[in-house]
C-alpha cells in the first residue's frame, strides 16, 4: 500500500508567528512533513507545541508566515473550497436547535446539495458512525460520546477525502474513548480516508496511527516522526503487546527529548 502512496498534505519549511501583546510567539518553526493518501497521522505533544495550529493551517483557518503547504496539490484555501477536508473539533458543537440529521445536513445545505442527496448522505453517514435511528433526536437527548460521533458524521457527510480531528475525544471518559477509537479505526479502514489527529494521549496516538508526529513547544516544531509497525487490523488488546509498548516508549522518549518543562 505504501509503495503506491501519493502525497496529500505536503508542508515545507512551514513557519507561523503570532503577534501578541507580549511580543511575537513562534507557533510553528521549520515544519517539514508529508502525509500520504490513506495515512492515519497523529500529532502529539504538550500544550503550545503547535499541533492544533498545524491542523488549522491545513484547514486554512490560520495562514503561515513562511514556507509552503499544499493540500491535494492546492493551497489550503483552494482545498477548502474544493471540500477537501472535514474538520472535527474538541467539542461536538452541534446546534441545539437542529435535530441530529439536520445538524449533519448543515454543510450539505451550505454546499448546495439537493434535498434528496442530503437525505441520502445523512442516512449513509449515520450508519457509518452507528447512529441509525437517532436522526430525529435533538443533541441534548444523546450522550457526549454519541454527540461526538454525530459531529464526525457531519464532517464525513460531504465525502471529503481528508478528516482533520482536533482532540475529538479529549472531553470523554476513558471507556467511551476506547470504544470510539475502535470505531474510528474501523471507519478509517473501510473508507481509506487520510486522517490528521491531534491528541494528548500516548496510547491513543499509538493505537490509532500509521505515523506519529511528536512535537515540542517554544517554538513549535517536529522532534520525531515514528512509523508504526503495528498491523492495520488492531483489536483493543493489541495495547498489551510488546510491540505496542515499544512504540509507546519511543513516543515518550521523543516527548521527553523535546521537553520544555524546565522545572
Amino acid at each position: 500500500m505504501n509503495t503506491t502512496s501519493q502525497p496529500v498534505i505536503v508542508a515545507e519549511k512551514l513557519d507561523l508567528t503570532f503577534q501578541t501583546n507580549d511580543g511575537p510567539v513562534q507557533a510553528l518553526r521549520d515544519v517539514n512533513l508529508t502525509i500520504n493518501k490513506g495515512d492515519f497521522v497523529s500529532f502529539i505533544g504538550p500544550s503550545g507545541c503547535g499541533k492544533t495550529t498545524f491542523l488549522r493551517v491545513v484547514a486554512a483557518l490560520e495562514h503561515p508566515t513562511g514556507g509552503q503547504i499544499s493540500v491535494n496539490g492546492m493551497t489550503p484555501d483552494e482545498a477548502r473550497r474544493a471540500r477537501a477536508y472535514g474538520y472535527v473539533f474538541q467539542a461536538a458543537g452541534l446546534y441545539p436547535w437542529r435535530t441530529i440529521e439536520k445538524n449533519i445536513m448543515l454543510p450539505l445545505e451550505i454546499m448546495g446539495y439537493s434535498s434528496d442527496e442530503q437525505a441520502e448522505h445523512v442516512d449513509r453517514v449515520l450508519k457509518m458512525v452507528d447512529l441509525e435511528g437517532f436522526g430525529k433526536k435533538y443533541p441534548w437527548q444523546l450522550s457526549g460520546g454519541m454527540q461526538q460521533r454525530a459531529s464526525i458524521a457531519r464532517a464525513l457527510a460531504f465525502d471529503a477525502g481528508i478528516l482533520l480531528m482536533d482532540e475529538p475525544f479529549g472531553a470523554l471518559d476513558e471507556i467511551v474513548r476506547d470504544h470510539l477509537n475502535e470505531q474510528l479505526l474501523a471507519l478509517w479502514d473501510r473508507t481509506g480516508m487520510t486522517v490528521g489527529f491531534v491528541t494528548h494521549s500516548i496510547p491513543e496516538a499509538v493505537y490509532l496511527s500509521t505515523r506519529i508526529v511528536v512535537m515540542s513547544p517554544r517554538p513549535g516544531r517536529i522532534t520525531d516522526v515514528i512509523e508504526s509497525t503495528l498491523p492495520r487490523e488492531r483489536p483493543l488488546d493489541i495495547r498489551d503487546t510488546p510491540e505496542f509498548l515499544e512504540i509507546a516508549h519511543r513516543v515518550r522518549e521523543g516527548l521527553r527529548a523535546g521537553h520544555a518543562y524546565d522545572d
Binding site: A59, L61, G86, Y87, L106, I110
Partner: peptide, 8 residues
Amino acid sequence: DLLKTYSA
C-alpha cells in the same frame, strides 16, 4: 470556525 471550513 466550523462554518468557515464549509466556506459559508
